[in-house]
Design a protein around this nucleic acid. Sequence first.
DNA 1: ATTATGACTCCCA
DNA 2: GTGGGAGCCATAA
Length: 121
Amino acid sequence: MARYATPPGREEFHEEVWDLVCQIPEGRVSTYGRIAALATPPVGMDPPAYKAFGARWVGGAMAHCPEGVPWWRVINAQGKVSAREGEDRQRPLLEKEGVEFDARGRIDLANYAWPDDNARS
DNA sequence: ATTATGACTCCCA
DNA sequence: GTGGGAGCCATAA
């Protein structure tokens, strides 16, 4: 199985990602890019590549998501879960936590996105 | 060494 | 608002 994008020798990166995911409060969701932005990116990485760097590697970290990591709270910029079987699993899980889905199965990041750009300082 | 794929994101039509 | 294409990193064959 493709270990998928693994940071260039940055195991800590994965730990940081998992930690951030665990920090996501109940009833809130975050995006791969957001987590990546919060995590510590490699040095010398170009800005345009930065977004891709995080999104993909964070996804790789989720692929290795150890037990206790609410990976279902991590969604993509589209407001949906890209997980192979997460769509069916994430919906009830998030709904149970208080997250509402759009008619198209999309989540309102404006209300559930974490961390909130405005709220909490 | 090259090609193909992957739990992504951004830009343009 | 929706859809398709291109780009970035690393792994596996």
